[in-house]
Each structure stands twice: as structure tokens, then as C-alpha cells.
Design a protein around this nucleic acid. Structure first.
Length: 500
RNA sequence: GGCGGCAUAGCCAAGUGGUAAGGCAGAGGUCUGCAAAACCUCCAUACCUCGGUUCAAAUCCGAGUGCCGCCUCCA
């Protein structure tokens, strides 16, 4: 492919699964982006794989909005399917109770992770009418056929079948692992409509009572809310085949024109280098993770790896991200301290020699990273580099009591850029810095001592310190350390943090 | 068996022709009664192996080794 030139243009490139290269992003309609992302099947709690997928597309959504696009973003719910029916039978509760429950749990998880709600969140069962219309159209065109109450898509009728997942149709037929269904003309043909079995939920249709196949729902919802052709269609890389391949085949067969311009797929989350799956019992729910780590830590953990790479989940990695996040919050905190110093006149502004920071190009560099197929690791490196630069000046200024006017301007620009880009594009640094540091470092619930007791002991120790009785002061400090409380003396008094 | 991906410092991870971003950990320093925290500095002659192309390769080509994914519900 034509790679990005070194004098990076200010244009967005997106890797397209269809073409296997990065392409310049050009929406169908200038200024507007139509984006569809496959949502969850509502039958269980969300796991960290879902978290990664929806954080990935949340960042895509946020960045497109940040660079000025009006994004119409659809993310659906699959609320009718075999697994849901199974769950409903197992727990002896209605299907709608199962789906409502897990849709709510999902929304709670996404909300906790700072994943923004999309423009539309349709449910498959609210789109049955549109699905039936498409199926009728496909049958009329000879692209689908009915057999004993089932309707199948005729794969051989679509010449480009296999084009998205880059598979050879003849090899697929030869290597098919699914048992041949007597009613199908070809093993690859897939169900658009399934005749309902006894006790299963059903909808009336020209082919009798039944329910939709999995793939047709996304075609119907995408067309209903975004139109027959859209810009971006996303999902996990496991959806490329057969789900998206089938969606493309049925949609394009029905409308006669291109369904999606840019197909985006995020990489998987592995655990100990193995795919996370229910059968391996190695999956981790968002709920469990969120109790142990701040959601921004989780976001940062994912963002440190490019969205298309697989990521090996680890607590070491999470801990590393946690430290990184604290580093960013500490810098914002340092800025607050500088402003406070200026207000209280302990830091004055002068025109004396400055640190010669003149590179105000950080915003462009950040965009360069994001423009290169949403390269968050690169974009983050811009933020961390900038953080190091401003920390140095802020630290010098606060201790020296003076700051150069040019440096101050630079720092103010840098801080507002870091805050804005992080908050709006990356979805981190949403918290008040002081509160974040407090909440994350002073959680007494992990220790046997109360905050009041700690405060009282600090007072006592400071009494000894004033009397220069360091032996007794150190005894208290060591005692607290044994309980997991680390003291931090500073000019403003003594603080503490809890270590586990 | 078919198709595809990956291999960069102790760990994580960008970088696809011009001489190795960033984060964590670690070491040294500033500060401190001593610590801690914070901050600063340092930390890959080098990118799995072997060949090749090129003035120039982690980056392109060939072979090999190892790991992983998809081909079945799956984010």
C-alpha cells in the first residue's frame, strides 16, 4: 500500500479488512459518518473482550467527532437467539426478562467504562418487519429460497462471497465442518429465517411462524437507521467470518450496491496467550475487573496496544497502566499546585530566561498518531512526552518561586490540550486530579485501621518530630507501615497512602 | 488440511527503507532529620535465525524456527 509520507498529511487513514490496507478515509457524505458496530447478544454479563471491542469503537466514535464529523453511530442488541432461549429455559424466566436484564447490565458496564452511548441502540426484535421485507426481496431476486419453513441465502448466487474474509468458496465447501442440512442446496447457505420449534418464541411470516437468523438482523438495523450504504462497520475480528461475510452478501444482493466502505475489526483479548472462552473457564467479567481497577486504568491498558493487535490480559499490565494513569493525574495536580502558588504569590511570573519550549505542535502530533488508523500508543506517547516536559518546568518553578511568562503560556496550552484530548478522545482523565489521587491511594478498606486512627497517629508523630524525637516518630511510622500505611511528609503537612 | 497474523530492552508496546516513541520495573540524583512521594537523568550499535536486494533494512524479498487466530456460537 501507499504508506503515510513522513510529512504526514492531516488525513485519517483506516485499515480496511476488505482491502487489507490502510485507506484514506472519505465518508459517503461530507461531514457525516455512518457507523455500525455489532453489539452483544444479551444472555450473560459482559467480559473484558466486550470491553475492548466497545472501548475501541468508542475511541473511533470520539475521535471522528473530535475532528469535526457528525457521527451517526448504531450499536445493536441481539435479543433473540439460541443462547438466550437456552438461558430462558434453564432459569425458567421469560426471554424478555433475560434480555432486559443483560441489556441493563451491559449499559451499566459501558457507562462505568466511560463508553459513550451510541446514537441508536436498536434491538433485533424491534426490527423483525424490516428483516422480513429484506428476505422477501432476496427470494424475489432468486438469492434465497424457502424450504419447510426455513429460508436460506443462496451463497452461490453472490459472486463475491468470500471477498471480505478472503476465503476461497470452493475450499470453504470442501472444508466445511458443519453437518449438511438436508434442506440446504449448499453447505455454505445460511439461514435467513428459521422455523420455530415448539415452545420457542416466534413471529408470523410468509413462511409460517419463525424467527430470524443471526446475520439478517444487522443488515436490517444498519439499513433502517443508516441507509443502504454506510461508511464504517465494526466488530471483533471473530465476526469477519461468517457474520460479516454473510451480512455483506445478503445486503448487497438485496440493494444491488456496496454495503460498507470500511470494515474495521479489533483484535482479541487473550489470557495467558490463549483465547478467552467460556469453555476454558478463563474469562473475566467487566464487573469483576471494575471492582479492582479504576475504569480509566482499563481503558489505558487497552489503549497502550493498537486496537488490531491481540492483547494478552495480565494484572501486571493493568498495574503498569495504573501507574501511568497516576503519572498523568500527578501532572495535572502539579499544575493545580502551580496555579495555587501563583494566586498565593509564592510563585511569581517573570521574563527571565525560560526553558525554551517553543514546540506547540503537540496537538498535530497527537492527530498524526490517531490519523494513522487510530494509533493510540503513538498518540499516548505524545501526551507522555509532553507531560515530562511540563513537569520539569512546573517542578522548577514551584520550588524556585518564579516562572517565565513564555513557559507559563506553554504549560497552560499543554495542560489544556492534555485534558481535552484525554477526556474527549481517549475517555480518560475525567476525574478531578486531587480526588483521583485520594481515591486511588487512600482506600483504607484494604487495611485494618481507620482514617481517624491514622490521622491521630500522624498528629502524635508530628509532635515527636517537632521535638526532634525521631526515634519515637519513626516507631509510629514503622508501625503504620506494617499496617500498609505509608506516610508522606511535605511542606503542607503529612499525607499518607495505602499499599496492599 | 486451507487461510491469516505475530516475533522489538527485565516486562508491556509504537515504529514498514535513512540509522530504535512511550509506559512499567530498575539504577543514580534533587528534596527530606531519615524515609516516602514527586520530579529530573540514565537504561536496546540494535529489532527470532540464516541468506538476498539496496549507498542505506527492524522495516523489502526468500528460506527456516517459534507462538497465535480464523475456517463452528463468539467482541
Amino acid at each position: 500500500m501507499k504508506r503515510l509520507s513522513k510529512t504526514k498529511e492531516n488525513r485519517l487513514y483506516i485499515y480496511n479488512t476488505f482491502s487489507l490496507v490502510k485507506e484514506i478515509f472519505k465518508p459517503l457524505s461530507e461531514g457525516t459518518v455512518l457507523m455500525y458496530v455489532c453489539g452483544i447478544t444479551a444472555y450473560d454479563y459482559s467480559h473484558i473482550g466486550h470491553a475492548r471491542a466497545y472501548i475501541t469503537f468508542d475511541i473511533v466514535y470520539r475521535y471522528l467527532t473530535y475532528i469535526g464529523y457528525n457521527v451517526r453511530y448504531v450499536r445493536n442488541f441481539t435479543d433473540i437467539d439460541d443462547k438466550i432461549i437456552k438461558k430462558s429455559l434453564e432459569e425458567k424466566i421469560p426471554i424478555s426478562t433475560v434480555t432486559e436484564k443483560y441489556i441493563n447490565e451491559y449499559r451499566r458496564d459501558m457507562n462505568a467504562l466511560f463508553v459513550l452511548p451510541p446514537t441508536f441502540e436498536p434491538k433485533a426484535t424491534d426490527t423483525i418487519k424490516e428483516m422480513i421485507e429484506i428476505i422477501i426481496g432476496l427470494i424475489d431476486k432468486g438469492k434465497a429460497y424457502e424450504k419447510n419453513g426455513d429460508v436460506f441465502f443462496r451463497v452461490k448466487s453472490f459472486n463475491d462471497y468470500g471477498k471480505l474474509s478472503h476465503k476461497n468458496i470452493d475450499e470453504l465447501i470442501a472444508g466445511a465442518r458443519i453437518p449438511l442440512n438436508e434442506d440446504k442446496e449448499n453447505v455454505l447457505d445460511f439461514a435467513l429465517w428459521k422455523k420455530s420449534k415448539d415452545g420457542e418464541p416466534f413471529w408470523e411470516s410468509p413462511w409460517g411462524n419463525g424467527r430470524p437468523g443471526w446475520h439478517i438482523e444487522c443488515s436490517a438495523m444498519s439499513m433502517k437507521f443508516l441507509g443502504e450504504s454506510i461508511d464504517i462497520h465494526g466488530g471483533g475480528s471473530d465476526l469477519v467470518f461468517p457474520h460479516h461475510e454473510n451480512e455483506m452478501a445478503q445486503s448487497e444482493s438485496y440493494t444491488g450496491h456496496k454495503f460498507v466502505n470500511y470494515w474495521m475489526h479489533n483484535g482479541f483479548v487473550n489470557i495467558n496467550n490463549e483465547k478467552m472462552s467460556k469453555s476454558l473457564k478463563n474469562f473475566i467479567t467487566v464487573r469483576d475487573l471494575a471492582t479492582a481497577y479504576h475504569p480509566e486504568v482499563v481503558r489505558l491498558f487497552f489503549m497502550f496496544t493498537h486496537y488490531r493487535s491481540f492483547i494478552d490480559f495480565s494484572y501486571d499490565g493493568l498495574e503498569s497502566s495504573r501507574q501511568s494513569l497516576i503519572r498523568l493525574y500527578q501532572a495535572l495536580n502539579l499544575f493545580a499546585e502551580l496555579k495555587k502558588g501563583m494566586e498565593e504569590k509564592t510563585v511569581s511570573v517573570s521574563g527571565s530566561p525560560n526553558n525554551a519550549l517553543t514546540d506547540f505542535d503537540f496537538e498535530r502530533k497527537f492527530r498524526d498518531g490517531m490519523n494513522d488508523d487510530f494509533n493510540t500508543p503513538q498518540a499516548l506517547s505524545v501526551i507522555f512526552n509532553l507531560t515530562r516536559k511540563i513537569n520539569k518546568i512546573m517542578n522548577d518553578s514551584i520550588s524556585g518561586g518564579v516562572i517565565n511568562a513564555t513557559d507559563l503560556e506553554f504549560i497552560e496550552n499543554a495542560v489544556s490540550f492534555i485534558s481535552l484530548a484525554s477526556k474527549e478522545v481517549l475517555g480518560i482523565l475525567n476525574e478531578n486530579p486531587a480526588d483521583f489521587i485520594n481515591e486511588n491511594l487512600k482506600d483504607v478498606s484494604k487495611t485494618s485501621i481507620t482514617a481517624e486512627e491514622i490521622k491521630s497517629l500522624i498528629e502524635k508523630r508530628n509532635g515527636y518530630r517537632r521535638a526532634k524525637d525521631y526515634k519515637k516518630a519513626d516507631e509510629i511510622r514503622n508501625m503504620l507501615l506494617e499496617k500498609g500505611v505509608v506516610l508522606e511528609d511535605s511542606g503542607q503537612g503529612t499525607g499518607y497512602k495505602i499499599i496492599s
